[in-house]
Computed example of a mutant assay.
Amino acid sequence: MDFLNFVKSVLVYIAVFTFSVQVTLGSIACENLNKDSCAFAVSSSGKRCVLEKNVRRSGEEVFVCSTSQIDTNKLASWIETDKCLHACGLNRNVLGISSDSLLESRFMQKLCSTQCYNGCPNIVDLYFNLAAGEGVYLPSLCQAQGDSKRRGMSEIRSVGYVGAPGPMVPVKFMVDGSPTIAPSNV
């Protein structure tokens, strides 16, 4: 009988320990994050969180945090620190995920700075993948940024657009990864 009580006690301790570790470590679901912690966060499943703005029928703007389809390579359960956002020249009010900021020299100076590049792996991973999606290797872009700002900017602007006749049509990717082509201004 003592052995049975011992086994029950051990099982209870294991259950309590497992629950307390899960509560202590927590799990991050993007939909549970508020506006002030959403942008640059990563869910427990390794998906990036994205801040979106919805407009209600009344005209009121509401910010919601959603789970994107973009996976991180190595990170999970991550809410970016204010220190990293400042070091990398970012803010929490950014909507969506875009490579557009890679065209801004002031942003690139911050992203390629030692404080950001060596101290903020989540942000560097995000922009590494965004640059790769544009056909650019981020370390090379940062090197070009240090060598010549114009060369770095022209490198990313020219990727994929060489010899493409006609007007450029902006493409926005939906959360599910499918492209939505913006209407023409013609």
Rank of each mutant, 00 (worst) to 15 (best):
W78G: 03
D71Q: 11
L95G: 07
L102Q: 11
S148R: 06
N122V: 00
I70Q: 00
C84D: 03
P139G: 10
M108K: 07
C116L: 07
A76V: 09
Y127M: 04
L111P: 07
R57V: 08
R56Y: 11
E52Q: 09
C84E: 05
C120W: 00
N54Q: 15
L126K: 05
L103C: 02
C116A: 12
S154R: 06
L138E: 06
G89Y: 05
S98T: 15
K110V: 00
K83A: 11
G146V: 07
L90N: 13
G89K: 11
S99I: 05
K47D: 03
G119E: 10
E60W: 03
S77I: 01
C65V: 00
D147R: 06
S58P: 02
G146K: 13
G59F: 00
E60A: 13
A76Y: 07
P121F: 00
N93T: 13
S154A: 04
G133M: 08
Y137C: 08
I97K: 09
T72M: 01
K74V: 15
V62M: 02
S113C: 07
I97V: 15
N93G: 12
A132N: 12
C142A: 04
L95Q: 12
G133R: 12
G96N: 07
K53S: 10
I79C: 01
D82S: 15
S99E: 05
L102F: 01
C65I: 03
S113G: 04
R48E: 08
I97A: 09
N91L: 01
S68L: 14
K149Q: 08
S99T: 11
G152N: 04
D125C: 07
V62T: 13
Q109G: 04
R92M: 09
Y117R: 14
G146T: 10
D125P: 02
A87D: 15
G59W: 00
L95M: 13
W78E: 08
F63N: 13
C112Q: 12
A87K: 12
G133P: 03
G119T: 11
S140R: 12
G152I: 05
V136K: 10
N91D: 10
M153N: 06
D147C: 06
G59P: 03
W78C: 10
L85P: 03
T114Y: 14
L51D: 05
R57S: 12
Y137V: 15
I70C: 08
N93F: 08
I70W: 10
C49M: 04
R56I: 04
C142W: 11
K149F: 08
P121Y: 00
E61C: 05
N93R: 11
I70N: 04
G135K: 12
R106C: 01
N118I: 01
C49W: 01
K83P: 01
R106V: 03
C65M: 06
G59R: 01
V50E: 15
R56M: 10
Q143N: 13
T114I: 11
C84N: 13
C65P: 00
Q145G: 14
L51K: 12
D82T: 12
D71N: 15
L85F: 07
F128K: 02
G96K: 13
C84G: 06
C88I: 13
Q145S: 14
A144K: 11
L130V: 05
E104T: 09
K110C: 12
S148G: 09
Y137K: 09
D147N: 10
T67P: 04
D71K: 13
